[in-house]
Nucleic acid binder design. Structure first.
Length: 160
DNA sequence: GCCAACGTTGGC
DNA sequence: GCCAACGTTGGC
């Protein structure tokens, strides 16, 4: 029996990297994650074939913009060693990289961004992690039922 | 621009 | 190991 597919939410500021950028590129390195809990999710729990809600943060409106698929296992994020990168981490060692990333591929862009306000207004999503007060993780798990509900609210073609 | 929430850092 | 100071996130 195959392992059940996992579901995620991944945040990006669209001014940095948007769902349109992913639609154009098809595939990208999800670089710049600098939080240990988010890193551990990628390292320990993400699997190729898992689906992720692509969330636009600090946007107008903020909310779910599309769907991506996890396309690689976690591996060292090269930007941590790049002195020119905003994600440079001088404390990270080449032989023991602190930060990891995964590759993601484009699946779907929603017809319009499903705004945070609409997620909050939906009673069936009330326990969703991203809606929790103070929740700032840029990579977090999503329950299958919540994922399916978000896709439905967002008029997505993707099925869980 | 404000500020709540939370993670990290560093003095002790 | 405690915890205050500081930095970051991200909605509003």
């Amino acid at each position: 029996m195959a392992r059940a597919r996992g579901y995620w939410l991944m945040k990006s500021e669209p001014g940095t990297y948007s769902i349109d950028d992913l639609a154009r590129d098809g595939r990208t390195r999800w670089e710049g994650v600098r939080n240990y809990q988010a890193r551990n999710y990628m390292r320990d729990q993400m699997k190729v074939g898992d689906l992720a809600l692509f969330y636009h943060s600090s946007a107008e409106p903020s909310g779910v913009a599309g769907v991506a698929e996890i396309a690689s296992a976690a591996y060292p994020d090269p930007t941590q060693f790049d002195g020119q990168s905003p994600y440079h981490d001088p404390k990270s060692k080449k032989d023991d990289p602190a930060w990891l990333l995964v590759d993601v591929t484009f699946v779907e862009k929603l017809p319009e961004v499903l705004a945070l306000q609409r997620l909050k207004a939906d009673a069936s999503l009330s326990s969703m992690l991203v809606l929790r007060r103070g929740q700032r993780l840029s990579v977090m798990p999503v329950e299958r039922a919540h994922f399916a509900r978000v896709l439905r609210l967002g008029k997505a073609r993707t099925r869980v």
